[in-house]
Amino acid sequence: MSLRAGTKLEKVLAAGHFALTTEVGPPRGPDVDAVLKKARILKGLADGYNVTDNQTAVVRMSSIAGSKILLDAGLEPVAQMTCRDRNRIAMQSDLLGAAALGLRNILAISGDHQGAGASGKLKGHPGAKGVYDVDSMQLISIIKGMRDEGLQAGGDALTSKPAFFIGAAWTPLGPPIEFRVLRLAKKVAAGADFIQTQAVYDIKAFAQQMAKAVDMGLAEKTAILPGIIVPRSAGMLNYMNNNVPGVVVPQELIGRMKDASDPQAEGIKVTLELIEQVRELPGVKGVHLQAIEAEELLPEIINQAGLSPRPEV
């Protein structure tokens, strides 16, 4: 199969390697150094670096700008794009801009509702008008139409076709659980080349959803990368279990973190086990590994998981 965009992530997957992506959240200011600092820690460790798009509806440096900074620093970005803040005109314009800057991995997601920004310590912009002109599924098909047909969503021709490797998110364990695999199938039908999932802790439940995806032939049509977030304390796992939609944490795991004398070391151990476990599941093509606000833990974890160095492709 010929490559769609020829990004490093795409090539790693095409060559059959176990892929590794991670995340770089842009700062709440125009601080290039903040991005570069994370870049220095993570360079060479992953095949793709997601740059979030105003995650949790909090204003940050744009994902396209952050992605370009990473690209220039020699890291291959996955620029995220939500449906919350732009209509289809702005989306396509930004996509063309991204392509012009050399950004070719795009992850299309719905995005947290604008009300989410006010839920933590920050004020956010709960009074903002959410756009939601198109949904993530439609955004995926728009990107695919631009890439494959050279057409805008409205039908007008582009002057040339942008090369994109299209990503989408999947929440395998969110309710209504019976629809989650079908929704994945829709994303694949719409054009998702790769999938990063919500954080997985309940391997058994995830394995069941994964098996359904494999049965439907989805794991061949798209590269599924389960999300793994390094657990740092029992409290954090509890919080995620109760407050982060679609994240199911087995009580046993929470107990294990609680009993640990060194939660950080235990969290690393758990992460390594999770990576091993998802790696054994049929259809899994890599992992999307995150250490929220603790990127410095990643080099060691990636080394110990035997995922370093990354394949040259």
Binding site: D135, S136, P176
Partner: peptide, 17 residues
């Protein structure tokens, strides 16, 4: 739907639906 989605539930659906 808080996001006027047309293709099914987002990843935000709470555990209790």
């Amino acid at each position: 739907c808080a996001k006027s989605l047309m293709n099914g539930p987002c990843g935000g659906t709470r555990t209790d639906g």
